[in-house]
């Protein structure tokens, strides 16, 4: 659980992410976002639940679908929106767009265009944390698609043998692009697969932000006590296509509608807070309006920001220290 303020902050963050994604989707369809974008609408509780349990200087490394992780980590809507539009004011200074959001100095070791790669980097960050003797953890996000790439299990094994302070979070939206996870995953049970490596592994409700937060908080304590990694399979759902504008035939409209209507993470938390008397309509309306204003401001900021200077193409290819 948490205090009322914490609960309202989680609700607002999820609302902000949803508004951000739906706005960014429209902007992408209007040609404002270069290279497509991966909308996380529906998956907000995974990102917000995880980040609510982390300390600000814990490290994350993530996937091709990472707007929600990045916003929940504390990056502003302005800088994420600007990055989607490849603006110099963006998270990655306009060099990364939707798939490559990251700022090492702020503990965000990057989104990733390659399935499973971010989780491996998170494992490496956890090794760095352990060797430096710091009291932190790293979270490696991976999707359900990443459950069937060999590198994922190499990294889980390494984290387990070295007892690294790593939390593997499967942001499991059940579709690897357009392939239903159950069609391509032998054995079916991901925690069972992970537990073969000797670490705690469980499936959690990725639509329930409080459940995600609690599970990550436990995993974090476990890691900080020197016990090593935890594997959390957070089952969630993505409302939009893999990429903007994709309307595949691989799932039914009824299925999407069911998740949106009956299992939406924002609706669920709001309903609970209303029921518990922690939220009233006036506060909720105020939050809705402030989120709208925040995203409107972010879009204006992004649109008015400059693109990176083409003269800087060779800047930061390397440090220059080896080139004399």
């Amino acid at each position: 659980m948490g205090t009322r303020e914490e609960m309202l902050a989680m609700l607002r963050m999820m609302m902000m992410i949803r508004n951000f994604e739906e706005t960014a989707d429209k902007l992408t369809l209007r040609g404002k976002v270069s290279g497509g974008m991966h909308n996380s609408s529906g998956q907000e509780a995974v990102a917000v639940g995880v980040m609510s349990a982390l300390a600000p200087d814990d490290v994350i490394a993530t996937t091709h679908r990472s707007h929600h992780h990045t916003l929940a980590k504390g990056f502003s809507a302005r800088e994420v929106m600007a990055e989607l539009m490849t603006k110099a004011t963006g998270v990655s200074k306009g060099r990364g767009a939707s798939m490559h959001l990251g700022d090492v100095a702020r503990g965000h070791f990057g989104g990733n265009g390659i399935v499973g790669a971010g989780m491996g980097i998170g494992m490496g960050a956890a090794l760095g944390i352990k060797l430096a003797g710091d009291k932190k953890v790293a979270v490696g996000f991976v999707g359900d698609g990443g459950m069937n790439t060999g590198r994922t299990w190499e990294a889980v094994n390494m984290a387990a043998i070295w007892k690294l302070p790593l939390i593997v979070v499967v942001d499991n939206n059940q579709y690897a692009v357009e392939t239903f996870i159950e069609r391509v995953t032998a054995g079916g049970d991901l925690p069972k697969r992970a537990s073969g490596f000797g670490l705690p592994a469980s499936t959690i409700d990725g639509q329930n932000v409080l459940e995600v937060k609690d599970a990550v908080a436990k995993a974090r304590d476990f890691a900080l006590a020197g016990n090593g990694p935890t594997f959390l399979n957070a089952v969630t759902y993505r409302y939009y296509g893999h990429n903007v504008g994709e309307k595949g035939q691989y799932r039914t409209l009824e299925e999407i509608e069911d998740w949106r209507t009956n299992r939406d993470p924002i609706d669920q938390l709001a309903a609970r807070l209303f029921a518990d008397g922690l939220l009233d309509q006036a506060t909720f309306d105020e939050m809705t309006a402030s989120v709208e204003a925040e995203i409107k401001d972010a879009v204006e900021f992004a649109e008015n920001s400059p693109n990176p200077d083409p003269a800087d193409v060779m800047l930061n290819v390397d440090s220059g220290k080896l080139r004399g």
Partner: peptide, 8 residues
């Protein structure tokens, strides 16, 4: 990957 993350 361990090297990359630790170096970062």
């Amino acid at each position: 990957a361990a090297g990359v993350g630790a170096a970062m």
